[in-house]
Design a protein around this nucleic acid. Sequence first.
DNA 1: GATGAATGAGTCTTCATTCAT
DNA 2: AATGAATGAAGACTCATTCAT
Lengths: 199, 199, 199, 199
Amino acid sequence: MNRVQRKRDERVRRILAAAAEVFGERGYEASTLEEVAERLDVTKGSLYYYFAGKDELATAAIETLGTDWTERLEALAESLVDTPRAERLRTLLREHIAIAVLEYPAALRLFLVPDSWPAALRARIRELRRRHDQVFRREVTTGVAAGEFRVVSVDATLQAMHATMSQAPLWCSHLAAEAREQAMDDLADTLLGLVSSPR
Amino acid sequence: MNRVQRKRDERVRRILAAAAEVFGERGYEASTLEEVAERLDVTKGSLYYYFAGKDELATAAIETLGTDWTERLEALAESLVDTPRAERLRTLLREHIAIAVLEYPAALRLFLVPDSWPAALRARIRELRRRHDQVFRREVTTGVAAGEFRVVSVDATLQAMHATMSQAPLWCSHLAAEAREQAMDDLADTLLGLVSSPR
Amino acid sequence: MNRVQRKRDERVRRILAAAAEVFGERGYEASTLEEVAERLDVTKGSLYYYFAGKDELATAAIETLGTDWTERLEALAESLVDTPRAERLRTLLREHIAIAVLEYPAALRLFLVPDSWPAALRARIRELRRRHDQVFRREVTTGVAAGEFRVVSVDATLQAMHATMSQAPLWCSHLAAEAREQAMDDLADTLLGLVSSPR
Amino acid sequence: MNRVQRKRDERVRRILAAAAEVFGERGYEASTLEEVAERLDVTKGSLYYYFAGKDELATAAIETLGTDWTERLEALAESLVDTPRAERLRTLLREHIAIAVLEYPAALRLFLVPDSWPAALRARIRELRRRHDQVFRREVTTGVAAGEFRVVSVDATLQAMHATMSQAPLWCSHLAAEAREQAMDDLADTLLGLVSSPR
DNA sequence: GATGAATGAGTCTTCATTCAT
DNA sequence: AATGAATGAAGACTCATTCAT
């Protein structure tokens, strides 16, 4: 029974990966279950054995991706407890951008789910974002409290960071490897400037 | 003939306004001509009298909206020639955010056109963005040249500004009038911090 | 009033010519009033001033074309009263093929009108064909009566002639000028063979 | 898997039969998938499970019909190797006419495909016609070589034969059984006259 | 568990036709 | 006489969803 369970989990994982890929590339509306199925080399019908429908699949894909992403950032933050605040924030920003650009270039589209979705799903996604937001929010608020960072508004600052990081792939994806690294560095440094406003 | 022409222009203008609204709210894929027609209280078929198809309509809508937006910012910049640089930039940022939040809350979606579009249309949209970008780019570069602004990278700075402004509606739209004004102010001030990096 | 009438007739003639062209090129279903109007540089609506609808226009176009064609053949036959029978028939066949190939390359499609047409229109077209058929039928029957032609069946012979001549454009149209002339000659000579069966 | 395959083939066969019927009756443009579906008592959508679209369906229908037709004639020719030339040709002509009139009364319309079709499909159809043409071309050329037939031009002769046979249903379909048999006989005999031109 | 098949609602698009001006 | 505008019905095509096997 345990082996069965593991096999099913593995199956689900593969489906979610394919789904995240497709939804990311095309956006929710333009994605078709047919394409997801095709990348997995199964038939459309099979997907319904694991997911109740398109919405469920998209939500699960977002959730998986979001959780993975958040956990990696949390782990990174953890490992930098002894690093100076500004340096730690820069590293987190840089890593976030790198994940966005290199691994989930279409996350922006993925998170632009239709307004018509059931409230429950929307709430789920909002929760994901909240947890994701926490990683950076903690850094900013503690930095401000410690007097090392200065911001106009914590909310506005975080919004600017998230917006910029999520759109980064739009600018960086088409660059050559070296230029891309540079662009990502610049972006992280620029965002770091947000927490040290002029007096 | 002149009256006829004016009438036609007016008609086209109204269609474009409705189209921009719908495409903005739903994104390209999820928008239907049916809905555009419904808001105009005409039939789908009528739209085809003025536009060759969904793509053409969307492109025209984007173009109209983009041009209008840019021209308003350009006019505003013009009227502020004697204002101190930082103040002028803040005003432009604030206005941009206001337009985004109050008038084109879904511009972000609107500009995320499908990759499958003909190159010509994509090029047209890119051009629009470029011109739009110029308004802020000029402010930043001249400010840097004058030694009043300091940035890590002009490109990165502008990217951060645009990304943040275009996503502003996602956060501000649901706020009550007063809180919204405050949020927009905070956002503009925060972005202003991007051009005065710490020494 | 007379001048008005003449002007109207002229207008109708031009419309019919354009219509015959379009219906001929595309067949009935694939033809659009828009295209007919375009070739005349007027608007679709104007056509309705002269014709009650697509069917009427098509019928009139067929009728005009058919009458013109028949009359030319009748005139030609008239002018050849003193020519030997076989030679006269050959000339008529050759001329028919030439008109089909060079002037009405799509007559075949044009006459393949939908079965759904009102009986009246279909009857009209049948009548046209009948008169057209008479030109050749007279030649064949008198030739047989005179003992100069020999046929298995007059009907079958005429059917073969008409079928071949109407399909001639399908084979000859794409040929170069010289080869085309040769092909048309061969076709006429071949058809002539139909009236001199072996004993 | 074999049973599944056979079932699918059977399904495809039935669809093609219905499609050939409809396209034949109405011609390409006037045919609708709705009507094809209706005759099969399925929904339009189902057709798309088997064929990519209207073009594909029409092409496949033509191909099936053409191949079947050709193969029957080839088999018939084969079985008549010991029959005198003229008699064999007459039998082939008669059979061709019978198939046209009794089984594919609308083949003429079916083969009048729109010029706008992709070159690949047009080429496919041309190939079908070529193979079909071969059956009669072989008879005529070998007959001529043997000195038993005499023609003005092999091409012109074959064109006349094909044109006449394909239009035969237009004349014969509406006749009563007996008259129809007679008409078909006459037609075959008349066409046979094409290969024995007068000296 | 998975598949092939089918469905039906929805979407884009075309076009004959009507009509006020 | 002619035009611009609008309509509505029809048709091709897509796709999420269902279901028997």
